[in-house]
Nucleic acid binder design. Structure first.
Length: 423
RNA sequence: GGAGGGAUGGCCGAGUGGACUAUGGCGCCUGUCUUGAAAACAGGUGUGGGGAAACCCACCGGGGGUUCGAAUCCCUCUCCCUCCGCCA
């Protein structure tokens, strides 16, 4: 959520940000009107409340019954007026929050201008795509042949876009999770084990609600929501808290499953395990001072790149253009790995500086060491690689002519002696 | 699932309708004293909002209600604690 003061003092900044994101700017005027109305109502109602407070104290002290009665009568009317105005304030604030809550973050100055994902900018490519002297197979062929991915069973027990990993496939995914968590711990992150269901307030804080309601799973009985990413509970950890500056920066990593209805991408990427309703992810998350967030973004990007490098996967770093930037992010780098079987670059990681956007929604501040006013923290999030896609990349890049899969060196400690996956 | 007890400032803890402008203590900050520190003493010390400012408004777990006036009374929800039941 953006700062209301930004609209008052510098509405052009917001209009410019919306224009760069290819969005309509009329919301800015609606916000300004509602804000002016809110302040107009507040001035009136607070004057009346001050009067009521003063006179009520006089009533308490007064010994004259006639005077008391007159004042009680007068304040009864003032009270009715206050109630009516309070209700108007509530409605205006609700409308104001509804408008502001749907406005995305301001893209940082260096973010390339662009309409959609086609105008993203490749920053660098690292590693040479492996050359094959045979035709590499896509994972949806490799997996079933090796008996490590079963699509039919997933569909049978749950439905479309669900699959089962079996034997070495399940173990390989577990190895990736364990290895990645350990790597992030070495990089300075503290591991968190989190609830996989959260309440509505937490989703609002993380910027998922109200905008992405259609992409979330919701248990109506208990009013719990399944997390679409660890970013959501990680943002919620310090909701409504004031941290000490000395505690910052905070680096967290967490493994969680992620649940997404993917309503908006129905029909896309239907083959294989690239896009499912349930997938696993290891996330990195940082809380820091505003001055540190640019530097922390570079650290997080380097940390995410290290996972690809150590897995021996060729990858490229892509900077998202303004038209493709996510709702919360001010700047985002995607990491894409080459999948020779399905013949495409797979987005395995997305590393973003969210600046104070989630912190304002979640009300997470810190007290400067020198004292003075509390300030909003900056938050950053990045996947230390989404798992099905990393699994795809490992399977397709490490396939051998006979259809077997060589297990990457770094994962072998978790594979119980399996160096090569064969049928 | 059942019965009971709780939730007050950074922390402890008092407050059962009007002097609460939230007592007191601890902690923290500033000052006095001191070569310095400690101790003692004095003052200060929450968050958010409105206003050019003076100042004002809101907040005692969340929401709603009664009242001229609510930390205090009523309803409701959440969470914590104790016990019982059930349970991986």
């Amino acid at each position: 959520m953006l700062d209301i003061n930004l609209f008052r003092e510098n509405p052009e900044v917001v209009r410019d940000a919306l224009t760069r994101r290819q969005m309509d700017v009329s919301v800015v005027d609606r916000v300004l009107e509602l804000d002016a109305e809110r302040r107009r109502l507040l001035t009136r109602v607070e004057t009346l409340k001050a009067e009521r407070n003063t006179v009520s104290k006089e009533i308490g002290r007064s010994k004259d019954p006639a005077e008391r009665q007159a004042k009680i009568e007068a304040m009864r009317q003032v009270g009715e007026e206050i109630a009516a105005l309070d209700e108007q304030v509530r409605q205006v604030e609700e409308a104001l929050t509804a408008e502001i809550a749907q406005i995305p973050n301001i893209p940082k100055a260096g973010v390339p201008l662009g309409r959609d994902e086609h105008e993203n900018v490749v920053i660098r490519t690292v590693g040479q795509p492996r050359t094959f002297d045979f035709t590499p197979l896509p994972h949806w062929d490799l997996g079933p042949r090796l008996g490590i991915i079963n699509f039919d069973q997933g569909v049978k027990i749950t439905g479309s876009r669900f699959y089962v990993l079996s034997g070495a496939g399940a173990r390989l995914q577990r190895a990736l999770i364990a290895w990645m968590l350990d790597l992030h711990i070495r990089q300075g992150y503290t591991e968190q084990y989190l609830p996989f269901m959260v309440k509505e307030e937490t989703l609002f804080a993380a910027g998922q609600l109200p905008k992405f309601r259609d992409n979330l799973y919701h248990d109506a009985e208990e009013d719990f929501w399944m997390v679409p990413t660890a970013e959501v509970p990680l943002t919620g950890l310090f909701m409504n808290e004031i941290l000490e500056e000395a505690a910052l920066p905070i680096h967290y990593t967490a493994y969680t499953p992620c649940f997404r209805r993917e309503k908006m991408s129905a029909g896309r990427d239907v083959r294989g395990i690239k896009r499912g309703h349930q997938f696993d992810k290891v996330e990195m998350y940082i809380y820091c001072r505003p001055e540190e967030s640019d530097r922390e973004l570079e650290k997080m990007l380097a940390d995410a790149e290290q996972t690809c490098a150590e897995l021996g996967l060729p990858y490229r770093v892509v900077q998202l253009c303004t038209g493709d930037l996510g709702f919360n992010a001010a700047i985002t780098y995607d990491i894409e790995v080459w999948a020779p079987g399905c013949n495409e670059w797979l987005e395995v990681s997305s590393v973003s500086n969210v600046t104070d956007f989630q912190a304002r929604r979640a009300n997470i501040k810190y007290r400067p060491a020198e004292g003075g006013k509390t300030r909003l923290v900056h938050t950053l999030n990045g996947s230390g690689l989404g798992l099905p896609r990393t699994l795809i990349a490992v399977l397709e890049n490490y396939q051998q002519p006979d259809g077997s899969i060589l297990v990457p060196e770094v994962l072998r400690p978790w594979m119980g002696g399996i160096d090569i996956i064969t049928p």
